[in-house]
Design a protein around this nucleic acid. Structure first.
Length: 480
RNA sequence: GGCGACAUAGCCAAGCGGUAAGGCACGGGACUGCAAAUCCCUGAUUCCCCGGUUCAAAUCCGGGUGUCGCCUCCA
């Protein structure tokens, strides 16, 4: 069974066929760095990180490009307010973007082009569009003439006439069609500007992505992704510009869009003010829980945010972690031990199911379900281990070690387990030694059957977020 | 006003024509000094409502109701 992805362009799941065999070129619309990213902003980056990881798991070589829109109205406004240059604003929030996404385990794209580094390419593209008759100049501004592009509306499923009728946009009477959009904007006083054939100005909103994606990925690249609010007008306009520029050559093969994060069923957005920044959330919840939360629902569905959900995500992950910790303690045995153990079969089955789920338009929720079932199977075997004789034990241990490898490998396609250790290792050594000392003392009390004192230690530690678990092999502790 | 999406147990969430995955929470049991962790068992006669198609529908069609999104910067 092969990978199928939902293409916004066709509104259907399609078989995923790449342009260049064995390689996937992907472009994800990045941020305008004028603010700290909120959770809604982060969703596409986590989503497309999983997409990329899965493609790599399948054996594709990926080339992932993501832009920074480092000049635009909001950055300019912000820079004027703070008395800084646009570049200073952009630089500082780009830095913040990386800090936050790194913590969420988002792999770095291979390349992050910035608009301000691509002004010549953009000017060239606008110039060509004017020459080809798709764009016109108006007092230093250049507009794209949507009426010239017959396919306009094909991505968002809109009809030009309907759009005109329903347009709530303030109409600029100079434009030929109210929907014509700016490719180049004349500079106002005090704004960053570059020289162009139409006078000093800066790129319009949509042209950057076309210019940069075409430059680095060439027409007909495989995946273009972003939030579904970009479908119209941003991506619609990108298609219009890019396909007009490339003489009708297909711009993108697969358009992928993720659903929104909502709060109380309402879209999380800066303008509504109902947002939480990634760093606010990470101050209260571990990154793996946030990431788990983000992938526990299919990427195209809306996802309602709440602290309860994050708590739930945290508890769900515990299931994986307790199993993983048990598996870590297993002694080494020959790799071939337990070759015909039933658990080995489960390993193959879970991987098949995992692939089947992910092949169906990256169904991470289903994939996680399979992983949970697999964990139960692992725990069953772990429990059995105690009642086994030596010979059987070796086989079970061998199979369990293989299961651990499978679980870790599949989990990391989703990027969840690798985040855990980072956070867990944060505790300092002194703390660990003190806890060990308390456990030792408690052991003494337990021997003397002084349950009251023993329980006081356990309860006290629990208050501090340290959970003790007694087992025949001794007492272990973990953070709650 | 135009276009579109979604409605599945207490909560979250898969399934998209063959008789309801998984997680969290809850209850019972095993284990334990008691817990915790883990395992076992239990939970929707039913998938918003009403019709229809079909041997068979949560899944398809029609009509309602409700919620949300896009049409404006927006991930």
């Amino acid at each position: 069974m092969s990978l199928r992805v939902y293409n916004t362009l066709s509104k259907k799941k399609e078989e995923f066929v790449v342009r260049d065999e064995g390689k996937v070129s992907m472009y994800v619309c990045g941020v305008t760095p004028y603010n700290y990213p909120h959770l809604g902003n982060a969703r596409p980056f986590v989503v497309f990180d999983v997409v990329r990881r899965y493609l790599e798991y399948l054996g594709y070589e990926t080339y992932h490009v993501q832009n920074f829109t480092d000049v635009d109205d909001k950055i300019i406004k912000r820079s004027q307010e703070e008395g800084k240059t646009a570049k200073e604003i952009a630089d500082s929030y780009i830095k913040a973007y990386f800090e936050d996404m790194d913590r969420l385990g988002v792999k770095r794209a291979h390349f992050y082009p910035r608009v301000t580094d691509h002004i010549p390419e953009i000017i060239e593209m606008v110039k060509t569009l004017v020459e080809k008759g798709y764009a016109y100049e108006l007092e230093g501004d250049v507009y794209y003439s949507v009426g010239k592009f017959p396919d306009y509306g094909k991505l968002s499923g809109r009809d030009l006439d309907e759009l005109k009728a329903g347009a709530r946009v303030e109409v600029d009477v100079r434009k030929r069609n109210p929907l014509d959009f700016a490719l180049w904007k004349r500079a106002k006083e005090g704004e960053p500007a570059w020289d162009s054939p139409w006078g000093p100005g800066r790129p319009g909103w949509h042209i950057e992505c076309s210019a940069m994606s075409l430059k680095y990925l060439k027409p007909g690249f495989d995946i273009h992704g972003g939030g579904s609010d970009l479908i119209f007008p941003h991506h619609e306009n990108e298609i219009a510009q890019s396909e007009a520029y490339a003489d009708g050559k297909q711009f993108v093969r697969y358009w992928l869009h993720n659903g929104f994060i909502t709060i109380d069923q309402e879209k999380m957005s800066k303008s509504l003010g109902n947002f939480f920044t990634v760093r606010e959330i990470l101050a209260k919840y571990p990154p793996d829980a946030v990431r788990f939360f983000l992938i526990s629902t299919h990427y195209r569905s809306p996802l309602d945010f709440s602290e309860e959900r994050l708590e739930e995500a945290k508890r769900s992950l515990e299931r994986f972690y307790t199993a993983l910790d048990q598996l870590d303690k297993l002694p080494e045995v020959s790799d071939h031990a337990g070759q015909d153990h039933p658990l080995r079969l489960e390993c193959r089955r879970v991987e098949e199911r995992f692939k089947e789920a992910m092949n169906d338009d990256f169904n991470t929720a289903l994939a996680l379900g399979h992983l949970f079932e697999f964990v139960r199977e692992i725990n069953r075997n772990l429990q059995d281990l105690r009642q086994k004789n030596m010979e059987e034990e070796e086989g079970t241990i061998g199979a369990l070690r293989a299961a651990k490898e499978t679980l870790l490998r599949l989990g990391n396609v989703l990027g969840i387990f690798e985040l855990r250790n980072k956070e867990m290792n944060k505790g300092d050594e002194l703390e660990a030694k003190l806890i060990d000392l308390l456990i030792e003392l408690r052991q003494e009390f337990r021997k003397k059957k002084d349950w009251a004192t023993a329980d006081r230690i356990r309860d006290g530690l629990k208050e501090l977020g340290i959970v003790l678990e007694d087992s025949p092999e001794g007492t272990i502790w973990r953070r709650k």
